[in-house]
Computed example of a mutant assay.
Amino acid sequence: MTDTTKPKRYRMVSKYYKEVYGEKVYKLPVALPLTCPNRDGVAGVGGCTFCGEIGAGYENRPAWMTVDMQLEENIAHIGPKYKAKKFIPYYQNFSNTYLPLHDFQSYIEAGCIDSAVGIAIATRPDCIADEYLDVLQDIKERYKKDIYIELGLQTVNYHTLKKINRGHDLAQFIDAVLRIKRYGFNITTHMIINLPWDTMEDTIEGSKILSSLGVDQVKLHALYIVKNTLMAKWYEEGQFTLISAEEYAERAVQFVRHLHPDIVLQRLVGRAPEDNTLFTNWSMGWWRVQDLIDNRLDELDAYQGDLCDYLNGKSVRKFIE
């Protein structure tokens, strides 16, 4: 089991929340009745090859419930369990800006409850437009809530982006980040660092690109093979193999070491229900994978950002140092 008392060699989100809000803050998952543009034909069909019919929200309440109902139930569960008083409603499932502007505004305003310190919105790079950011700016000013936008990227390898049917390219991700930064909103990027077509070099380059763009937070996780997906079909047919847990830990370590030290890490490994997957975290508890990463960092005496030496004109440093 992961030692939660041991100091981390990277900047974790729990510490960040305490620094910003003075106490622990918990996310409250919210599901909306929507989809993604790479499912309905606008950017593609079938969705991401790894994504199941319910999307990413395994712990969400049903999307037919109102936002108020979902938040009320989640607070009733999370509040007493963790003695939590501050929350961030997290619009998690599918692409939460893929809505008519008026509907988008109404759904986000519904999450601006008194105990919410911010609003988190998961979406795709090709679903970021200034008009939606204007709505969020207005909500931020009127309701005094911080805005967190979470962008699924998964990989910086544009060949892999096509292979997994993301329906957007790296340029669209860069455009989305630059637009969001003009509004000053907090940006999180989701990355899968063991996609079968990616290498260690892709992992390191991903860390460098996110650092260069100045994203605020990162979520890493290992690929889940969800049942009844195209990825599951490829997996069962033996069209690819997955790296070992030890190699995943090596990639995570290199990602962390090349990541700018100011960037917050929300997680280094994720969780998914095993009964809905063919492969999840090498059939071991997520904390065991976390331990592999932490132990490897200890062995190397390595820290977040200790290899982040590539920014601000590395080659001309000899003339100015």
Rank of each mutant, 00 (worst) to 15 (best):
T199W: 00
W287T: 12
V215F: 09
W287V: 02
Q254E: 15
R251E: 06
Q254Y: 13
Y183H: 15
T203L: 05
K181F: 06
Q266L: 04
L153I: 11
I174R: 12
W282I: 09
G214D: 02
A171P: 00
D169L: 03
E236D: 08
V215T: 12
H258T: 07
H258C: 13
W286L: 02
H258D: 07
W286H: 07
I204N: 03
L178Q: 14
V177Y: 05
Y235G: 05
T160V: 10
K208V: 11
P261G: 06
D216T: 10
I209C: 03
N228S: 10
I204H: 03
K162V: 03
T155P: 09
G214L: 04
R251L: 09
V226Y: 07
S207T: 07
M200W: 00
R182P: 02
T155Y: 08
E201V: 06
A232I: 05
H159R: 14
R288F: 00
V226E: 06
E205K: 13
I293F: 02
A272P: 00
L292W: 00
V269N: 12
I187F: 01
Y158E: 13
T229C: 09
A272H: 11
Q290H: 10
R182Y: 02
N194H: 09
V269T: 15
A222K: 00
V218R: 09
Q266E: 15
V156Y: 00
A171H: 13
R288N: 09
M231I: 03
A222S: 12
R288V: 04
L278V: 04
M284W: 05
T203P: 08
M200K: 13
